[in-house]
Write a protein that binds this DNA or RNA. Structure first.
Lengths: 228, 228
DNA sequence: CTCGTAATCAACGCTTGCGTTGACTAGACT
DNA sequence: AGTCTAGTCAACGCAAGCGTTGATTACGAG
């Protein structure tokens, strides 16, 4: 059984009016900003409504619930992310090249889809929804695809010898992912003194691929003995 | 004006009974686990009480509020973290050595103080409390001390030539911090197939200091031209 | 001018969760 | 046995926030 407002929303959605779709997109964009600022639980629909200069109840003409709003924001971001990683994994080049590509591609995604991607990254999705819900299961799949793509690149590098096996592929992959994802805590698009996303990507790439050590004061690596 | 329960709590605290302190610590430890699992906003005091087999109201004999409980968990973790980073920065060794030390030290802290440290790390503190509150300002200071210690190590490495200036010191520092902190999303103490914190620390150290590239398929670094 | 549709909003019910009250219980001490 | 105290808990008040209703406004078409 549908509620009154829900029926009207479904009708408007089915009709597919351009103005309606545009207003809806506006709401989603504004909500993304709010979620980015306050987090999913910290943000209220009142905040979203206020940022749009409208009433909270009016939002329900465009969206079914706070969760639906959140899902809409996150799903596309996650899917795009996964596809990008998979495309790089399946593309041409050595594993090392691919890792470099991956890092810079992610950073520029962030720059473009900000704040959508950061909403996605900053939320620990396992804490936002019941693990058994349909949406949570979809997200688990998408996240796994993403992880597997990165892990796959590292493993292929182990195989062709282009990546030094300094540890388990999963740990290396999560290290890279973490380095990039953690930017959600400090990177602010266009803040004064803030390097560009591209510059951050280049720095990360260089440090992960070729290392920070200049080799002038420490032995130049190879396999150093486990000192513990 | 104090409420009844608050007066009794203050009295019990002032008296300093050992059993009281122990029970209080038990509550804090259990709360840390819950906060770690559900996040600050997602966890309710009912959850905490239930995990202790007691009533929610009984908690207030030991703690003043949910916030106080959270602060107690986080403050020490943050302070310990900052002091550790500062001690490493101010200790002996080259900057490269210090970075390696820092990474492994952090990872073993996590292993020891788990879940306290992860509660601290997983919460974006700017989203949990009003930025102007006394506590938030204290935390800002502690966080800055930590960041500055890491940035300081990187800068000193620039100075003595042991660290290659692949980008701004802040970006390098945040890259390392991110790599380590992101473990809160996937590292689970003692989960099956999970590497030890020490092993993860070694892997991260090796990849950041000496790089992943074997040099067999890509030019061995130096300064590569900006390709953009 | 009137009518119909798209869009808005004041007001409501409902749930969750925080913090408090004041009474109760178990056990130590006299 | 009687009393005192540390600790517990059923019950309450209160605020925030979600989703709904039903009426109202704005406005374009006829």
């Amino acid at each position: 059984m549908q509620s009154g407002i829900s029926r009207r929303r479904a009708a408007a959605l089915a009709e597919g009016g351009a103005a309606y779709a545009e207003r809806r997109a506006e709401i989603i964009a504004s909500a993304a900003r709010i979620f980015r600022e306050k987090g999913f639980r910290g943000a209220s629909l009142a905040d979203v409504a206020e940022s749009l200069g409208t009433d909270r109840a009016s939002l329900y003409y465009y969206i079914g619930s706070k969760e639906e709003l959140f899902h809409e924001i996150v799903r596309d971001a996650a899917e795009a992310n996964a596809q990008q990683a998979e495309a790089i994994r399946d593309g041409a080049g050595s594993a090392v090249d691919k890792l470099g590509l991956l890092i810079t591609a992610l950073m520029s995604s962030y720059s473009i889809h900000y704040p959508y991607l950061f909403v996605y990254i900053q939320e620990d999705l396992s804490k936002v929804a019941d693990r058994r819900s349909a949406w949570a299961r979809q997200m688990t799949v998408i996240n796994k695809r993403y992880d597997d793509a990165v892990i796959g690149i590292v493993e292929s590098g182990f195989g062709d010898g282009s990546i030094r096996p300094v540890g388990p592929a999963r740990v290396i992959a999560y290290g890279i992912i973490g380095m990039v994802n953690w930017t959600h805590r400090w990177y602010r698009e266009g803040a004064s003194g803030m390097p560009s996303a591209a510059e951050i990507g280049r720095t990360f790439t260089e440090m992960v691929l070729n290392g920070l050590s200049s080799g002038t004061l420490t032995p130049p690596a190879g396999q150093q003995p486990a000192d513990q």
